[in-house]
């Protein structure tokens, strides 16, 4: 089965074609980051309009790249939530309409299920069951995955997502917002021994996270350091390093605990923050020491993309699930409410 996937939940337009025999045949992402950066924030209506402009050209582009005709598409998958409602409406309307025009089934995919299953696009891909850490600007969740659509939330952030803590701390360090990746770069030059940030909620049982307090800690450290330091640039790098160490440590501690509690041996990381190099190194070492293995998607599949939606949609369409001739995007959509796919 060959599926066209469309992702428009936020500020990236992603389109891809996945074939269950031939794998990922083509994928393309158009990022609106520059448009939103000019405004200093996300502009939901602008995002929707830009998705309208970009989605159809990207569909033509991936069909060309894969050397395929639209007649060879067997199904269409689009992100139906969660996300910005206007942005979701664009992808849903285009996806559902194309499927109707092409007389093929359509399926609305949960954005986070897409991220969760993205590592299965890689070779070698992890066997089910596994524990997944979804870590991005909007989410920090540990999920026990026993099958497609069989998700149990083990723990999640009670306040800020890890990526949000990265972006906000970057702002406190006078980096442009959202500056998570810049913070990681700055941390490369930092001394890990100069500051020590707390590892929130690791001293008690449970798998929930809390990253909100790190902002305040960063702010106090910055004030102290700038008051006593002759080298403010070095002080900022040292704080960036200490902050990154704290987030990475916290995520590693909770993942190790999740594997022990569930008895799983495989951990997958997904979402934008899973591209962080130090997190990958530290996680792989810690999980290997537990006799387990950590899996990561390639960086292009960590951030929002159409490939993960095509893949997740293909699994569901192949199991016979599809949508009637309506589309129902949802800004909020709890992942543990999804329909399970019986293993084939």
């Amino acid at each position: 089965m060959r599926v066209l996937g469309i992702e428009t939940s936020c500020d990236e337009t992603g389109v891809a074609i996945f074939d269950d025999q031939q794998g990922l045949m083509a994928h393309a992402v158009y990022s609106q980051v520059d448009i939103h950066a000019a405004y200093g924030g996300v502009v939901p209506e602008l995002a929707s309009r830009d998705h309208i402009r970009k989605t159809l050209p990207l569909i033509r582009q991936v069909l060309d790249e894969a050397g395929l005709d639209k007649g060879s598409i067997d199904g269409v998958a689009y992100t139906a939530g969660p996300g910005l409602i206007g942005a979701l409406l664009v992808g849903s309307a285009i996806g559902r309409s194309l499927a109707w025009g092409w007389k093929v089934p359509a399926i609305g995919v949960h954005h986070m299920e897409g991220h969760l299953l993205a590592p299965l696009l890689e070779e070698p891909s992890p066997q089910l069951p596994f524990v997944a850490l979804l870590v991005s600007g909007g989410h920090t969740q540990l999920v026990d995955v026993t099958g497609i659509g069989r998700y149990r939330i083990l723990g999640e952030s009670l306040d800020d997502a890890a990526g949000e803590a990265f972006d906000k701390t970057a702002k406190l360090l006078e980096l442009p917002y959202p500056g998570g990746p810049e913070l990681a770069k700055l941390a490369e030059h930092g001394d890990p021994g100069r500051f020590r940030f707390p590892r929130p909620m690791t001293d008690r049982p449970g798998l929930d996270f809390s990253f909100s307090g790190l902002k305040t800690f960063a702010l106090n450290s910055i004030k102290t350091a700038l008051a006593e330091s002759t080298d403010p640039d070095q002080a900022r790098a040292d704080i960036a390093r200490a902050f990154e160490e704290a987030v990475v440590d916290t995520l590693v501690i909770k993942c190790r605990r999740a594997l022990r509690e569930t008895g799983r041996k495989r951990l997958i990381l997904a979402g934008g923050v899973s591209a962080n190099r130090r997190l990958r190194e530290r996680m792989s070492t810690a999980i290997a020491a537990e006799g387990g293995e950590a899996f990561y998607p390639q960086p292009a599949l960590c951030t929002d993309n159409g490939a993960m939606i095509a893949f997740a949609g293909c699994q569901r369409l192949r199991a016979g699930q599809h949508e009637p001739l309506v589309f129902k995007p949802r800004a909020r959509w709890p992942m543990d409410h999804l329909e399970a796919v019986s293993s084939s």
């Binding site: 999640e156 952030s157 009670l158 800020d160 949000e164 800004a331």
Partner: peptide, 10 residues
């Protein structure tokens, strides 16, 4: 329940 930051969802 928890009170999450609405920064990303607005």
């Amino acid at each position: 329940g928890p009170v999450r930051s609405p920064t990303y969802t607005l």
